[in-house]
Design a protein around this nucleic acid. Structure first.
Lengths: 193, 193
DNA sequence: ATTTTCAGATGACGTTGTCACCTTTCCGAG
DNA sequence: CTCGGAAAGGTGACAACGTCATCTGAAAAT
């Protein structure tokens, strides 16, 4: 008694899960439509009933990841028990966690696909808005844009260094969390002056 | 009177130039060994006399870009007429300039290839060392590691936002240069305290 | 002068993304 | 209740790609 619509939606989700799984375990090169189909229990042509092409499937995965981050930030913002500095730090560290646990997914989130270069940037907007609100609680609405862009960009890059193994160089002797703490401290201090 | 060695070296460079050109104009997807060979005046199999595979060719391009940055930073560091803050800003803005002028090359520089994930991270080390020295001039050797990692990561991420078009959102109303100025100012201030 | 070496050309193979066509199954109108 | 359209999925085919084995010709070494 599964309706056709339910079955189709389930297949679509199975394709997304299969692709995300392959991405995490074997990297982007392991994500082939044939492998995705096989893991989802269908054949190579089936994904075209749910996604225009391979790129659309990847964009959907990246967008979903951005949506989860947006929800996480929204939940943080709504938490009244946490002081703004804590919210900010938690929101930033969430990105680091994704980068560490799912580096290939992290890369995908920041890629811009050849066909629709702005697709993932659009998906990131909701997440950025939530983040902007959290920053505003700390530094005030006037400076939120300035420090918001700086913090998001910085953490994105710091996580990128971690993902590509550059931060592992003993030359730095800093964890991403260390750097985030320094960054938040500097921003909090600068906004008070 | 071109010797065979000279001819081989010229072909190798022609392949690198052709690939870099295709990368800049058409993105990574436009870089096919057949197209690279055609533009360099050879056929599709010829690149295998100079590079183990396609990935090695791309790594060579990314490494060369990192080398150019290292040289640029070294030249900056040797310039006695510039105060440390100026050197630091110029070194950081150099990354932004590459990102803007050659976004696909910029992406390649920060990618980690499936075969040798640390290859480009190694190529970036010399550049990082030069940068570390410049930071040291400003904040002292004790804090150089801390702020060096923070600055490199931050600027990498900020440029990434610019490259992927996220900073273009009027929501931020900040140029990458604005953010770098804020960042440098904050670091200079923090290191004085 | 002869042998070795190596850049380059060519043919072939497996894999991939994609499309056209066919089959099957479900939903809704009569 | 029937039947016709719609849509999911399967199958065959094709072009493009990375890669390798093999061949050729010319330069370097002996």
């Amino acid at each position: 008694m599964v309706s056709r619509l339910e079955s189709a939606a389930a297949t679509r989700q199975a394709l997304l899960d299969a692709a995300a799984d392959l991405l995490n375990t074997g990297g982007l090169e392991a994500v082939t439509l044939r492998a995705v189909g096989a893991r989802a229990g269908v054949t190579r042509g089936a994904p075209y009933r749910h996604f225009a092409d391979k790129e659309s499937l990847l964009i959907a995965i990246g967008s979903a990841a951005w949506d989860r981050i947006a929800e996480h930030s929204a939940a943080l913002r709504a938490d009244g028990t946490l002081p703004p500095v804590r919210k900010l730090r938690a929101a930033l560290v969430a990105l680091i966690d994704i980068g560490r646990a799912q580096p290939h997914l992290y890369r995908l989130m920041f890629s811009n696909p050849p066909g629709d270069p702005a697709a993932l940037a659009r998906a990131a907007r909701r997440s950025h808005d939530e983040f902007l609100a959290i920053v505003g609680e700390l530094v005030g609405a006037a400076d939120a844009r300035r420090y918001g862009a700086l913090l998001i960009g910085s953490v994105g890059g710091i996580t990128g260094m971690e993902v590509s193994g550059q931060l592992a160089d003993p030359k730095w002797s800093q964890t991403p969390e260390d750097l985030v703490d320094t960054l938040v401290e500097m921003v909090a201090h600068a906004s008070r002056a």
